[in-house]
Design a protein around this nucleic acid. Structure first.
Lengths: 300, 300
DNA sequence: GCATACTGGTGCAATTTTTGCACCGATTGG
DNA sequence: CCAATCGGTGCAAAAATTGCACCAGTATGC
């Protein structure tokens, strides 16, 4: 969009940190770019950059303007998506911020299902922990967030909440399979493979451990759920994950079962969007599909 | 703002209904304007106007775009207002949609009070009935609405609600002043001066009359609250209004007192804004002042 | 049936805006 | 002290926008 060119250039300067670098990125001369910035500031009424000896940085007014620019761009995308929709075209782009647990099975299945009907719709998946996911929504970097146990919940509009019990993962044939109900204390005697503190599963486990007067001392702490899954069979350890990221034990190649609810309270897997935001058609429809899929999981 | 020029031109065409008329309004040639519209449509990807033998009219895509244009413009105004605020300047413009009852005393006082502190802030007051006021908010024509008994309340964010009993107005010395509690039936024997059905007072009276098996047969029906006020003394009639638009009886030049609550339920005077909208600084601050003033009225 | 007054659209030249080039002054780091 | 940055500016070339003259189509009035 031609009339958005000035905004693009401003963003380029913000990214590059100096007019000269931004000029290279945008295939312009520094002088031309300089004058566009100056021209805009004059129209706008206030400077939006601080001129430092090293380059340019947004001043507070510029920060406010950047919010406007981002809103403006996403709202235009929404309009174009709605227009495409009313002329029968089903194009668009859906960006999702999600927890790792959704990556192996749930999201690939859902995306494939959606794209079977709407091949013109493209997706981007941003793996984020629960705090980052919300920031992603707020900065319009993602349309939807599907996260386990988010932290703030301000500015977050919950579309669906699916309870998820924390599952323990262990090698096939482990004695943990035999006890009638899996208690947290049964697990704590084993070597532990835990996600880092940024993750909801770890948070729920910490709360549970504290309430029975124990502390968690992991043998391996990692941000990779994949690593957790694979490591438990290597060292006869116990890992923890939520079931939406797991196949049934008979297919998974390792055993897993939920921890007793009286020990570890179930967490909530939340599908949400930025409060008050009108989503592009494709994102809104995909969100509806996800709600239906999560409902089916809740009451099978 | 130069980069908004295309949007201004589109709006001009929408208003004028044809390129040639819009060209005159915008001091451009029809050909230049024509090509800008065509150029935008090409960039946008779809036509936004229907070409009729009589001129141009927005198509559905154009309607969607107009929403975006309006949002974009008001959001820019918000940013500029916030920027002005952080550089210490207290400029801005506040537009209010309100019922007639606020015109004689309440709003003039409040505006004068605000402008005493912030002379750089200007106001526009749009007198609207309760349905129109909400449409005004939705189309970003007004920042705030102060209305009696609004109808829909979707998209309406209530900032404050002040209960208002319906008052009966009558000439000084009327026997209505003497009864211990003013009942609706006492009034119905007099000649009635009523606002039209668009107004909340009329609505409350209709409900009350129906519930005691009576109907309202006004001698004079008008949209002008001013006329109601002045007419009651002319023909010894009874009118109805809410107290926020009235001076105390001793100053008003006519008598008035509230109707019994068991006959006519009190209505609500609502101060509100469009749900989810971030108001310009001046509007937000004036809104806060109004809330404080209404609170003072509620608990004197 | 035909002139008239509208409408949007287009080729081409004039005009305005934007851009690139060659610089300047200032600051920083080796 | 010099080289490498940075933002900013005068001036001419390049590009976009605009105005003028005109076309084709369609209602309207006589």
């Amino acid at each position: 969009m031609r009339y958005l060119r000035t905004f693009e250039l401003i963003e380029a300067v913000v990214r590059a940190g100096s007019i000269r670098k931004a000029a290279e990125d945008t295939n312009l001369t520094a002088s031309a770019l300089n004058r566009r910035i100056q021209g805009f500031e004059q129209e706008f009424g206030w400077p939006i950059f601080e001129r430092l000896p090293r380059g340019m940085r947004l001043n507070p007014a510029g920060e406010l303007l950047m919010q406007h620019i981002r809103l403006q761009r996403t709202d235009l995308a929404r309009v174009q998506s709605q227009v495409a929709d009313l002329s029968g075209e089903r194009r668009g782009h859906v960006s999702i911020a999600c927890s790792q647990a959704l990556l192996p099975y749930f999201l690939p299945e859902q995306i494939a299902l959606y794209r079977a009907d709407h091949p013109g719709v493209t997706f981007s998946i941003n793996v984020r922990d629960r705090a980052q996911a919300e920031r992603d929504l707020a900065s319009y970097s993602s349309d939807l967030a599907l996260v386990f146990e988010p932290v703030h919940l301000v500015e977050f509009d919950v579309l669906y909440a699916l309870p998820q019990r924390v599952h323990a993962l262990y090698p096939s044939g482990s004695p943990l399979d035999d006890v009638p109900a899996l208690r947290l204390r049964d697990c704590l005697n084993h070597r532990l493979v835990l996600p880092t503190a940024a993750y909801g599963v770890r948070n729920l486990l910490e709360i549970a451990a504290t309430s029975i007067g124990r502390t968690l001392t992991p043998a391996l702490e990692t941000e990779s759920f994949d690593l957790i899954r694979h490591y438990v069979t290597q060292e006869n350890a116990v890992g923890f994950q939520i079931p939406i990221g797991l196949k049934p034990p008979e297919e998974a190649g390792f055993g897993h079962r939920p921890l007793a609810e009286r020990d570890v309270r179930p967490g909530r897997l939340l599908l949400g969007q930025l409060k008050g935001r009108a989503l592009p058609v494709a994102s809104a429809k995909f969100g509806q599909q996800l709600v239906a899929a999560l409902e089916a999981l809740a009451a099978p």
